[in-house]
Amino acid sequence: MSYRPNHDPIIARHPFLRHMVGIMTQPPLVFDRARLAANVARREGQPDFVTDLVVADLADRLAPVTRAFSKALVMGPDPRLLPDTAQSASGPIRFERISALLEIEGFATVDPERLSLPASDYDLIVSLLDLQTVNDVPGFLESLRRHIAPDGLLLIAAIGGRTLSELRDAFLAADVEILGGVSPRVAPMIDVRDAGGLLQRAGFALPVTDLETHIVRYRTPLALFDELRALGVTNPLAGRDTRLLTPRHLMRAAEIYAERFSDPDGKVRASLEILWLSGWVPHESQQKPLRPGSAQTSLRDALGDKSKT
């Protein structure tokens, strides 16, 4: 049951109480977005295979869609890496590119936590690698829906929940050995089981989610650590431990990683999950789910009565 402080007559009369309730109902601050921006800005000119992978997958997903999109927007941390065109089965798509993190000359920049896009009647919005760095995910999705016209499409790619699970395990073990406790080092990510519910909660119809799983291999754990720094995805958590990571700590994490996650050829593996979400803004022309109890054929008839065999 949701609590609505403005409907409580006592709280409504007291500004201080209204302020305190507002603080209590704010989403938790998980990510330090200033640090995120600084991390991404430092990677300029570096290859970014994750974004390249997602952009290629986006093209494959749009190609069979039998819909013409006349007003489309794509947003991501660095708009220079985003496509400006794509193709659906019904014709070309020209994207307006928006930065969701960096301030770059020639591109509009928006704050996903207080989203205000240039228009509110897009028939396609694509968000690439934004969702997993937003503190208020339900609020972000609801804001996106308000900027899409009825029967318009939202398509999102985000980092999935099992990404870098090996790295998380190695550092947890090293933290316990060296610090006597654990420190948050890998950002929480969205699980595919929760994604469809988030879209429905935000008011989207016909939600679909799926997961692309990739195993990336590195010569050593230190090679993985170096690539993460180059990609600008080092610890972005607001509650991170601000103490410098000592060489001893880093090397112990690398040793544990190699012990637990090496392949027979000596290389180590790292999991990468790309979570895709899609949903449509409701419209009367869309198919509707059947009313409970209205089915004309039973599941037993459809599958066959196994009790008779």
Rank of each mutant, 00 (worst) to 15 (best):
P83K: 04
D48R: 04
T66R: 15
V74N: 00
Y218H: 10
G76H: 04
H7K: 12
F171K: 03
P236L: 03
E212W: 08
L62K: 00
G239Y: 07
G197Y: 08
M189K: 11
L58W: 11
L153R: 00
A59M: 10
T309V: 12
A68W: 09
L128K: 01
A173K: 07
Q296L: 14
M1S: 12
G161I: 05
D136T: 07
L144P: 00
D130A: 06
L231R: 06
F204L: 04
P83Q: 05
P27Y: 12
V134A: 02
Y122F: 06
A205K: 03
M1T: 10
L129P: 00
L272P: 03
P92H: 12
F204W: 06
P9D: 08
R219H: 14
L117I: 03
H249S: 06
L129V: 07
I148L: 08
A258C: 05
A37I: 07
L102Y: 08
P112N: 06
L131K: 01
G304D: 12
T309P: 07
L154T: 00
R269Q: 12
A108D: 15
L172C: 11
S127E: 01
Q296W: 11
V54N: 00
F204H: 01
A238H: 07
P5R: 09
R248H: 14
S294E: 12
I104K: 03
E177Y: 13
A202C: 11
R300N: 07
A41W: 06
I104T: 08
P138A: 05
E44P: 01
D226F: 10
N6K: 11
R35Y: 09
V176E: 15
P184D: 04
D301W: 11
A38N: 12
P184V: 04
F171V: 05
S2I: 12
L155N: 00
A195D: 03
R168K: 15
L224P: 00
D301H: 14
K306C: 04
A254M: 05
G91P: 05
A68I: 06
L198D: 01
P92A: 15
D60T: 09
T309S: 13
V137E: 02
S99L: 03
E142F: 14
D32Y: 10
S298W: 11
G232V: 04
P282R: 01
T220Q: 07
M189D: 04
I10S: 11
E212Q: 13
P83D: 04
Q286I: 07
A158Q: 02
L277N: 00
L244Q: 13
